[in-house]
Design a protein around this nucleic acid. Structure first.
Lengths: 140, 140
DNA sequence: GCGGGACGATTCATAGCTGAACAGAGCGCC
DNA sequence: GGCGCTCTGTTCAGCTATGAATCGTCCCGC
């Protein structure tokens, strides 16, 4: 949690800080069901897909590098939420299959996320929401 | 760069993504002068303070834990941007003193930050800026 | 004066992320 | 059929962050 440090408080830093606060709330909510954002991202993706996905496919969907997914799957496998299965059609490929426990956690994580999301939405005046979305979409 | 993954696109995720994009731009700009956000935070803080600061003081100002500051200062010291000096009035305390090179980098980093900041400000319609700031300040 | 709690920095284990380098497998083209 | 390019996952080194545990120092209250 590192602050950019600037005496003034331009909107840019407010945005960064708000995002940090939000992220912290999400991590906390997920921690209660034994997940992190990174782990939730994978199990929810797998639950949604309904079939084992190749690690590179997962990396692409989570927009991270493959080496990161290797390690993330290592940890998820250690947690028993995911299992590595090999692809019979391509011996290079390794697919991640979600376990029963993984599915349960994904569902619980989804509920936790939804809770925070609703809490967040409630903190933004309804008619401002569209304006906010429009402004934020300009930041790329 | 891990996406929370949700098929819908509630404002919350836009906010997180916008912040990520922004952070990436800041990191890139700072990388050109050999800094990261974490490092810039420290050297700019030291430059502003005008005197060596205790590591715990720095940690407090950057809102991170002390052990993180220990390592950050290790790297900054290796880079030659900072020097550890001991506090004659308290033998527990270790202060970080900025070097000449550190000051130069802090200045260059400040210019880089300012560039991005202005670029960002330009992407938000002027009359929306206050609205955005108000909304974001509600996220705590 | 001194014993014990508070405080400062460090170390260690862990998590998450990146990019470079590598090995093995697939595949197109001659 | 075999050469080379491409793709896959992994490993490794490095950065940033946290929290627990440790060690030395400080200082309050007795």
């Amino acid at each position: 949690m590192n602050r950019p440090a600037g005496k003034a408080d331009p909107v840019m830093f407010s945005l960064l800080e708000a995002a940090r606060a939000l992220e912290h709330r999400l991590e906390s909510a997920l921690a209660e069901v034994g997940l992190s954002m990174a782990k939730y991202g994978v199990v929810s993706e797998l639950a949604r897909a309904g079939e084992p996905l190749a690690l590179s496919e997962l990396a692409a969907r989570q927009s991270c590098v493959r080496s990161n997914m290797t390690q993330l799957i290592d940890r998820l496998e250690a947690d028993g939420l995911v299992r590595r299965v090999d692809d019979p059609t391509d011996r290079r490929s390794v697919r991640a299959a979600i376990t029963r426990l993984g599915e349960e956690r994904a569902a619980a994580g989804g509920r936790a996320m939804k809770r925070v999301e609703e809490e967040f939405a409630a903190s933004i005046p309804a008619r401002d929401r569209a304006v906010l979305a429009r402004m934020l979409s300009g930041v790329r």
